[in-house]
Design a protein around this nucleic acid. Structure first.
Lengths: 157, 157
DNA sequence: ATACGTGCAAAGCGTTTGCATTTCT
DNA sequence: AGAAATGCAAACGCTTTGCACGTAT
């Protein structure tokens, strides 16, 4: 079984950047260099970076973008629907660049989340929650437990 | 269809408090008044309170427990496995007193999460992720989208 | 008696905001 | 030209921590 997802590939990245520009035009907000670069970096990062991790990753790429702008850019990318906020057990906001349906392994010890694909557990259609006035946009399974690293730590005690 | 879950009932509360005391003894940590009262309050609150909401709720009940102790008590209750950290898209830690399997409606606009039960979408057995060294303890479906209140707000624009 | 928990206040971080300046449309 | 975004630094809010004291085992 292979189900931990690979990084987003070059072709998908290109498509996502085009979609970002299209949505900016639709929403009438400027396509700034900063926003584009932030998106590029997030698409290239491992799963669910924090704003600060994105900022650090920008530094490595020699792109000088202030911390405040990184926060604001990520927020506008969420509003554009180009990325989403990941649901984590911790107290730091994390972002998820993967839009296609997938699931998460959540470690309840360290808060780490890993993307997985497992068609077996995915329901074929989105459940209807309109009785509650709720519009379902996507559906993700969280498999919560303890990751390898944390299990090792536990054994050591 | 009825699937938004009712508050935890009196009988269950009693059982949960007993379990808490038992686990304290097992772990060799003291059963203090503060920890017990914090648990009582969390069991009585609507879904996924923040530490500060718990603290406020304690005030209403005329229980003077310092904010720091509330934070520490909640953390020890998590370690004891008596409550869990809820997985939210926001930047504040939220707690979940419901241990039995259930699912969540997550509003991506306001970050609100509502407990639901829907056996139709619940997989019969926990998927095996031991290939990744991951021990699955529970499995929750997140139906992410927009809640009634936020949809109304959108229409007003 | 001893180890652990509690309360208080201060420190620590992640995040947001006000304002002058720059950039995009 | 006008509207919106950026950078900086300061402010803000949630959470943790150091320390003296209190409490459970």
């Amino acid at each position: 079984m292979k189900c931990i997802l690979d990084p987003i590939n070059a072709e998908t990245k290109k498509r996502r950047l085009e979609e970002f520009q299209r949505r900016c035009r639709e929403a009438g907000i400027p396509v700034t260099n900063q926003r584009r670069i932030v998106l590029e970096v997030v698409l290239g990062m491992h799963c669910h970076p924090t704003a600060d991790q994105v900022h650090a990753s920008l530094k490595v790429r020699r792109a000088r973008i202030s911390r405040a702008t990184v926060y604001r850019s990520l927020e506008s990318l969420v509003l554009l629907g180009v990325i989403t906020k990941a649901c984590h057990p911790g107290d730091v906001v994390r972002y998820d660049a993967r839009l296609e349906p997938h699931h998460h392994l959540v470690c309840l010890e360290c808060g780490d989340v890993v993307d997985i694909a497992d068609p077996e557990i995915t329901p074929p259609t989105l459940p209807d929650m309109s009785v509650f006035g709720f519009e379902v946009k996507d559906c993700r399974m969280q498999l919560r437990g303890v990751c390898r690293r944390c299990r090792r730590k536990e054994k050591r005690r």
